Simulated assay, not measured.
Amino acid sequence: MNGQVVRARRGVYANCPVDDLDALQALLLCLPSEAMLSRHTAARLHGFGVLSEGAVHVQLPPEIPKPRLPGLVVHHAALPVEPVLVSGLPCVPAARCAVDLARTARRLDALPVLDAAVRAGAVCRDDLIEEVLAHRALPGVRQARSLVPLVDGRAECRQESQLRLVLIDGGLPVPESQVWVLDGEGIRRFRLDLGYRERQIGIEYDGLSHLNRDRLRYDRDRANWLAAEGWTMRYFTDRDLYRRPAHIVTTIRALLP
C-alpha cells in the first residue's frame, strides 16, 4: 500500500488492508490477554455461524472487569475453559460455544446452532452431551439438554432445523431430514427437506431462492413427478414458520394417521 497506514482499531494500525480476521485480532489486542472469542463470533469461526449478530462476543474470567468498547459484548465465564486457536485467534472450544448459544438463544434458534455445529464437523453429539453435563447448574441448560437428543447434522439450513422443531414441539413424530426419493430403477431422483417416508409425505421450506424463474420451473417439474409417484407434498414459507407455526402442525397432523 505504498507505506499507507490503515487504522484497524483505535490505537491499532496496520500497513495493509484489514479483513474481518484482522479486525478481530486488532480488537483482541485492546483486551486483556485472557479474552477469547465466544458465542456468535466463535460460532462463525468454527463454521456454524447460523445466527447473525453485529457485535463481537468475547469471554473473560469473572474476576476481570468487563471492558467497554463499541460493538463489543463481554461475557463472564461461569466455567473455566482453555481457548483453542481458530484462524490464529483464541476462541471458546466448539462444544462450549454451541452449548452456550443453545442455552441462551431462543429455542427456535438454538436447535439450528446445534445442527449446524454437527454438520460442520466441529462437534459430535457425544461432545454436546458431555458439555451439557458440565453446564448442569447454569441458566438455560434445561433447554440445551432437551435439544441435544434432537440434533440432526443433515439439516442444510436454519429454517429447515426450525421447521423440524416446530413439528416435534407440536407433538408430531420426528421427521426424517434430507429424504431421498428414488425412481423405479432405484436411482436417487429428488431430495426433500423433511419427510415421513413410510407415509410418502414430504415437507419443504420455500425461501427466496425459490422465486427464481428457473428454480420455479424446476420445482414445478419436481412437484408433478412426486405427485405421480404417490407423494403428498406440503410447502411452507417464512410467514408460516415465524407467524403461524400452529398452521404447520395442523396441516401435517391432518396427513398422518
Results as ranks from 00 to 15, higher is better:
Gly171Trp: 07
Glu229Ala: 14
Ala43Asp: 15
Glu160Tyr: 12
Leu108Arg: 12
Glu156Leu: 09
Arg197Thr: 01
Leu51Gly: 04
Phe48Pro: 07
Val132Ile: 03
Pro257Arg: 01
Ala246Gln: 01
Gly171Ile: 07
Gly88Glu: 08
Tyr218Met: 07
Leu133Asn: 14
Lys66Leu: 07
Ala120Lys: 13
Ala246Val: 02
Tyr218Val: 05
Gly71Gln: 12
Glu63Cys: 10
Pro80Gly: 10
Gly47Arg: 06
Asp22Gly: 15
Ala246Leu: 02
Glu34Phe: 06
Arg39Pro: 08
Glu160Val: 12
Pro65Glu: 04
Ile203Asn: 02
Leu79Pro: 07
Arg217Ile: 15
Leu111Gly: 03
Leu182Ile: 03
Ala144Pro: 00
Asp240Asn: 12
Gly47Leu: 10
Val50Thr: 09
Leu133Met: 13
Leu211Gly: 06
Tyr13Pro: 08
Val81Gly: 13
Val6Glu: 04
Thr104Leu: 14
Ala35Tyr: 09
Leu138Ile: 07
Leu27Ala: 08
Arg217Gln: 15
Tyr196Val: 01
Asp219Val: 05
Tyr13Cys: 06
Leu27Tyr: 08
Arg142Trp: 14
Leu128Ser: 09
Val92Asn: 01
Val18Asn: 03
Arg164Asp: 11
Ser161Cys: 15
Glu160Lys: 13
Pro70Gly: 04
Arg243Asp: 08
Arg68Ala: 09
Gln25Cys: 08
Ile129Phe: 08
Arg239Cys: 10
Leu182His: 14
Ile168Val: 15
Val113Asp: 06
Leu28Met: 09
Ser38Met: 14
Ser146Trp: 01
Arg136Val: 07
Arg154Ser: 14
Gly186Thr: 08
Ile203Arg: 00
Val249Thr: 00
Arg145Phe: 01
Leu167Met: 12
Glu63Ala: 14
Asp100Trp: 07
Gly3Glu: 05
Ile252Asp: 01
Gly140Glu: 11
His135Glu: 11
Leu60Met: 00
Phe190Ile: 00
Arg197Leu: 02
Cys91Gln: 02
Arg10Ile: 00
His135Ile: 08
Ala137Ile: 09
Asp221Gly: 00
His210Leu: 02
Val249Phe: 02
Asp169Trp: 10
Phe190Pro: 00
Ala246Glu: 03
Pro67Gln: 11
Thr232Ala: 05
Gly54Ile: 01
Ala134Asn: 06
Phe190Tyr: 02
Arg158Lys: 14
Leu45Asn: 10
Pro17Ile: 02
Glu204Phe: 00
Val74Tyr: 04
Arg191His: 01
Glu34Gln: 15
Val81Phe: 13
Tyr205Asp: 04
Gln59Tyr: 03
Ser52Gln: 05
Gly140Pro: 04
Asp109Glu: 15
Val113Gly: 05
Leu182Pro: 03
Ala35Ile: 06
Val151Glu: 05
Arg234Ile: 03
Gly195Ser: 03
Gly71Trp: 13
Val123Ser: 13
Gln4Ser: 05
Asp126Val: 07
Glu82Met: 05
Arg189Trp: 10
Ser38Thr: 15
Ala26Trp: 12
Gln4Val: 09
Leu150Glu: 06
Leu108Cys: 03
Arg39Val: 12
Val92Lys: 02
Gly49His: 04
Leu29His: 10
Val141Cys: 05
Asp127Gln: 06
Arg7Tyr: 03
Gly230Val: 03
Cys157Phe: 06
Ala95Lys: 13
Gly170Ala: 09
